[in-house]
Amino acid sequence: MSTRGRSELQINLATNIVIISMAMLFATLFMGYAIYRSSAPVWPPMGVQRVSLFLPSLSTVVLFISSFFCYQVSVSTKKNELSKGHKYLNLTILFGLGFMVLQGLLWNQMKSSGLFVSSGIFASITYAFTWIHFAHMIAGLVALLYLKKILRSETKNLMTKTTSVENFWYFLEIVWIIMFITLFVF
């Protein structure tokens, strides 16, 4: 194996292990959710209103657009159009921040409709899952900022590092979509 191939393999392995670890964390949360939901006689529990779909749907669209721009970053990097990649990266970060603002609005809306963190298992799950996802979004943003830094100059393994950061961002997107479907839609 060449030196270059080896360091690419190392970066890919490390990213995948980190993603697997985080996937196990979220898988545990969803397993718990499945158990709560399947053992509850009705869902949402009696006296609890579903969360309005508007903000979660908007969040989904915004995060999807962010991921789309994120994909364009590696397309541009592959063609060695770094300034274009940079532009797409800024858009990715912008829409990512937009998603986070929407999450804040969502919590605000839930609170004002009387759904507090301590008002039972439905609220516990909705708040906790979105919080934990949000915390990972912060990590994802840090990764994007790191990418922003290395995209400026000729960096070793730039392409591998770009796809690694992207994969992490897609992972967060996928987790959100699963949450959107299971927590808010059904």
Binding site: G32, G47, V117, S119, I121, A123, S124, A128
Partner: peptide
């Protein structure tokens, strides 16, 4: 939150 509290409030799960 009430993940591990049984019967914390019967009406809301």
């Amino acid at each position: 939150t009430t993940f591990f509290l049984a019967g914390a409030s019967a009406t809301s799960g």
